[in-house]
Computed example of a mutant assay.
Amino acid sequence: MTADEGSPGPRVEAAGRRSIAAEWIGVAATGDVVVPVEALYAPERVSAAPGTSNLPPAVLCLGR
Rank of each mutant, 00 (worst) to 15 (best):
L55S: 10
A29F: 15
E38C: 03
T52I: 04
A39W: 13
P43M: 04
R64W: 13
S7G: 06
G6S: 01
P56Y: 07
R45L: 05
T30F: 02
V46S: 09
V37G: 04
G51P: 02
S53D: 13
P57D: 08
L60C: 11
A29V: 15
E13N: 11
Y41T: 06
V33H: 05
A3N: 00
A14H: 12
E5Y: 00
G63L: 13
A15M: 04
P10W: 00
P57V: 09
L40I: 15
R18C: 08
E23V: 00
D32W: 00
L40C: 14
A15P: 01
A15D: 09
A48G: 14
R11M: 04
L55Y: 04
G51Y: 12
T30Q: 08
A29C: 12
E5C: 02
W24M: 03
V37I: 12
T52L: 13
L60N: 04
E5A: 03
P57S: 08
N54L: 15
S7F: 02
G6Y: 02
A39C: 10
A58Q: 14
S19A: 14
A39I: 01
V33D: 02
G26A: 07
P56M: 14
S53Y: 13
V35I: 13
A29M: 12
T30C: 08
A22P: 01
D4C: 10
A21T: 11
A28L: 08
D32P: 02
E44K: 15
D4A: 14
G26P: 02
E13A: 11
T52G: 05
